[in-house]
């Protein structure tokens, strides 16, 4: 289920936990610092990245930091 965007947020992201390898590059890249690695393991044994659930501005930096083609989807408020 997509994380529900908070009213004040200008964007949100979806992370496909099964595609993520837990490299942490998105966590490092995130300007808003709203990503973290999950304490849980995914199907393949990685700690996948997770969105904190609030604070995303939809900038897309995490998408380009991520080496997986489709692990992250970025949504942004229509102006």
């Amino acid at each position: 289920m997509p994380v529900t965007a908070m009213r004040e947020d200008r964007g949100f992201i979806e992370i496909n936990a099964q595609e993520c390898k837990g490299c942490g590059l998105c966590v490092e890249a995130c300007v808003q610092k709203v990503l973290h690695l999950s304490p849980h393991l995914n199907h393949y044994g990685y700690h996948p990245a997770e969105y904190d659930g609030r604070g995303c501005n939809g900038c897309g930096v995490c998408f380009y930091a991520c080496p997986e083609p489709g692990a992250i989807r970025v949504f942004k408020a229509v102006a």
Binding site: G60, P69, G70, R73, V78
Partner: peptide, 24 residues
């Protein structure tokens, strides 16, 4: 809540799943 639109996601020219890979 403002209307949200996908701005970044998997490129069209990638396969949805990687069948040639055989596993994972």
């Amino acid at each position: 809540m403002p209307e949200m639109k996908q701005t970044h996601g998997k490129a069209q020219c990638f396969y949805d799943t990687y069948e040639r890979k055989g596993e994972l």
